[in-house]
């Protein structure tokens, strides 16, 4: 007869079964490889420091969700490092400028043009995220939810929150794409696979060589949810999700100009412009506790 026991006790007992000692061969293999494995340099931007701040302070910072660059250097080293996508997140909420304007460029200073701290905050009624709106730019809100069926090949889709430069020469858009797998692993490699698939479905170009052009980013400074920035021939796009977005959606932000297009030269290039927008974003919906001032009500109970 099968006695009914507490399932948790049975589960814990079952998990305790199996090997517990690291085999000597593995230990030796690690030690053998150490002399040929160079250590990273310790720099001023040491990326790994687990926060020990009070919950309230941590949540307050978490509410300032930002997409930040960095934390993915190892990701760029090649496929063998893919598994460690959750690694060394940068603690800095600052978007690292990608490149300065080329010498001789007769454009206004990008620093003067792109000061996101002066931007107004636009809240998307369609998708819930917040994003900065530069002075003088106009916004055309999304009038419906984005879907592959109707919007995948419409690069001026009305399902996008679109921002237009004062002279209408540049369009920056943000929207959210439904994920078929809401439980999608939150790693850069998985995200890159998703981006490749998205690239193909939206009929963009250069989908096969995305790996060579991706720049890993983080969404949210505390947990570093992986995000990616990709330069395409005719636009620059960023992809990311905060792990808590409702209904499992991927946020996409795009500057619909190629990196060296003359219309974005005054901003230091399309990537720099996109990064400025990303630095203003909060992808968490307003209803999410950590995105409100009353963040302390989101209690970290531990066990």
């Amino acid at each position: 007869m099968n006695t009914m026991r507490d399932p948790d006790v049975t589960l814990a007992a079952w998990l305790d079964e199996g090997p517990t000692d690291l085999p000597d061969e593995t230990r030796r293999a690690i030690l053998t490889a150490l002399p040929t494995t160079s250590q990273a340099r310790r720099g001023p931007f040491a990326p790994w420091r687990l926060s020990r701040m009070k919950t309230t302070a941590r949540l307050a910072i978490g509410a300032l969700v930002a997409i930040v660059a960095g934390g993915g250097a190892l990701y760029l080293l090649g496929p063998s490092q893919y598994g460690f996508g959750g690694l060394p997140p940068s603690p800095s909420p600052i978007v690292v400028p990608s490149q300065a304007p080329s010498p001789g460029q007769s454009s206004p200073s990008p620093a003067a043009t792109l000061d996101p701290t002066t931007w107004a905050t636009y809240t998307s009624t369609q998708y819930g995220f917040k994003i900065g709106q530069p002075p003088g730019w106009t916004v055309v809100p999304a009038n419906r939810a984005w879907s592959f069926a109707t919007d995948a090949q419409d690069w001026l889709s009305p399902a996008e929150d679109a921002f237009f430069a004062p002279d209408r020469s540049v369009r920056v858009a943000a929207w959210a794409v439904p994920l078929t797998d809401p439980q999608m692993n939150q790693s850069w490699p998985d995200l890159e696979r998703w981006v490749v698939d998205y690239c193909q479905r939206t009929k963009n170009t250069g989908c096969a060589t995305i790996h060579d052009r991706v720049v890993p980013l983080c969404v949210e400074t505390r947990d570093c949810h992986p995000a990616l920035l990709v330069r395409f021939a005719d636009d620059v796009q960023a992809f990311g999700f905060g792990g808590v977005l409702p209904q499992g959606k991927m946020v996409v932000v795009t500057v619909a100009r190629g990196e060296s297009d003359s219309t974005v030269a005054r901003y230091g290039g399309a990537t720099r412009l996109l990064e400025a927008f990303l630095s203003t974003m909060n992808v968490w919906p307003p209803a999410y506790p950590e995105s409100q001032d009353a963040a302390a009500t989101f209690v970290v109970t531990g066990n």
């Binding site: 150490l34 250590q39 040491a46 790994w48 687990l50």
Partner: peptide
């Protein structure tokens, strides 16, 4: 091995 390589960047 990754820990060994990245250890200098671990602040705490």
């Amino acid at each position: 091995l990754l820990a060994w390589r990245e250890l200098p960047r671990l602040r705490d």
